[in-house]
């Protein structure tokens, strides 16, 4: 697997494939299908200070080549994640990226300080882009100055590198990316879901109880690629790309756009084996395309001889 290893701040990835936060719970469900140690990393479900039930149902609605969700950050809360979920995950040889969410700046700081102490948490993913909660979340991810400030405060308390998850629901994603880089972010993860809606034909009302939800799946892939293409040329920190990936070919496409690793979200619901399947298929695809190492693909869309120092292990 030496053709797939990637070094990123805090993360020594045996391959650049990881399930995206919110699409994999805390790993327990998918551990019945395959050995989680095969994964490059796992982005666990967003954790808040207190337990959250989330939104009323219906929480999901299918769309053309995609789905809307409005789960509402349901999670068992910081204490249980630290005492139950993370120790359970430590039986696997896989770095954990802990997704940190909150309503107030203090919430983020409390979760980040505590969860980053766990030995298997190698990085944080600062969730400033959840579109499905009323307060917090996306409020921090649409105003550059607020995002910069939050990143800085979290960096002060975190014991591991901090990646900031960017929302596509902004006018200028490059400005947001630069703001969090300036705030000290070690990396970016992008993109979160796009706010969308579907209506019921019979009632005329929104299908989702939350009315709006986050659009994910293959439908958003072109948006993700365009945003990664723009941001990767404007910042000097690595990007973990996501948005509709479900095959090895698409992983390469995200690398071409400028991603240094990728996360797979919605596709896990369609095929529980999608991550190990992609990992297995990547080497032969690299052969077909004539690459020795996957890092050679990074940034080809805009770079002549694209390769940055942090790629090779």
């Amino acid at each position: 697997m030496s053709r797939l290893n990637i070094q990123l701040p805090g993360l020594n990835l045996k391959n650049p494939i990881m399930p995206a936060s919110g699409c994999f719970g805390f790993g327990r469900e998918y551990s019945q299908f395959y050995d989680l140690s095969k994964l490059g990393a796992i982005m666990i479900k967003a954790t808040t200070v207190e337990p959250r039930f989330g939104n009323p149902t219906p929480r999901v609605a299918e769309t053309s080549s995609g789905m809307l969700n409005a789960i509402g950050l349901q999670n068992p809360g910081l204490e249980k994640v630290v005492s139950n979920e993370l120790p359970w995950l430590s039986q696997y040889d896989v770095p954990i990226i802990a997704n940190v969410a909150g309503s107030l700046e203090e919430d983020y700081i409390e979760v980040a300080a505590e969860i980053s102490k766990a030995s298997n948490v190698h990085a944080l993913e600062l969730n400033i882009s959840c579109p499905n909660v009323k307060t917090g979340g996306i409020a921090f991810g649409t105003i550059p100055e607020v995002a910069r400030q939050l990143t800085r405060r979290v960096k002060e308390v975190s014991e591991v590198p901090v990646y900031v998850k960017l929302s596509p629901n902004v006018t200028n994603i490059v400005e947001m990316a630069k703001a969090v880089e300036d705030g000290g972010a070690d990396g970016l993860t992008m993109i979160n879901t796009l706010v969308g809606m579907r209506l019921d034909l019979k009632t005329g009302k929104p299908i989702l109880a939350n009315r709006t939800g986050g659009l994910s799946g293959p439908a958003i892939k072109p948006v993700a690629l365009r945003m990664i293409y723009e941001v990767s040329q404007a910042v000097n920190i690595p990007i973990i790309g996501m948005g509709g990936i479900e095959s090895a070919e698409e992983v390469i496409e995200f690398f071409y756009a400028g991603a240094s690793a990728v996360a797979v979200g919605t596709a896990n619901f369609v095929d529980p084996f999608v991550c190990p399947t992609i990992i297995e298929e990547l080497p032969s695809l690299l052969d077909t395309l004539g690459y020795e190492h996957i890092s050679e693909c990074r940034g080809r869309s805009w770079q002549e001889h694209g390769q940055l120092a942090y790629h090779r292990a």
Partner: peptide, 26 residues
């Protein structure tokens, strides 16, 4: 209930338990 993954990972098809003492059990 409308489902996403069908295996318990996505939290789409969650319902509350009848425990009146807390509102986060599911």
């Amino acid at each position: 209930e409308r489902m996403g993954c069908g295996v318990g990972a996505c939290f789409a098809c969650v319902c509350k338990t009848s425990n009146e003492l807390d509102d986060v059990s599911y």
